[in-house]
Amino acid sequence: MIDNIKYTLIGFFVLIFQWMLGDLFSIYDITPNFLVIYIVYVGLTSSQLRAIWLGFILGFIIDALTATSMIGISSLALSLVGYLAGVFHDRIVRIPVIMQYLLYTGFIIVFFIITVLISFQDSQWTVGNIVFLILLPKTLYTLGILSGSFILLRVGAD
């Protein structure tokens, strides 16, 4: 119970940080997503169920606060990322470091594929432009921040 409250409060802190200060980290309109980093962290270090439902709730709130179309897409994507990260809960320390980072990249790509590609389905932008100018830069930027955070928090280390 206490863990639930703790992770939820931290989640809301991350959400407020993303909402109020996310733009400060923007480089050429590419903003990292701190929520996906947090959900991956919860999935790997806490529990799969918590990651799924925290992802759902935080995703819905951030969409309600910022999205101009397709509200609910972030909750869908973050729930899925929470589930995928939770699959490796307790197992992540036994996986080689390179594989760990490939997994993290996969989690982030799954999130951005869902949020970016679906929200752009009705735009006139080509898939190549969306992938190379938005999806990949966002993924790499978020991965960079995730890597730094996880090294500091010793996620995946024995």
Binding site: F56, G59, S75, L76, S79, Y83
Partner: peptide, 18 residues
Amino acid sequence: YKPLVNLLTALAVSLAII
């Protein structure tokens, strides 16, 4: 299958929201 059931529920609710 509890995590999977939870995931499917969350996805279904998300789709309902959308």
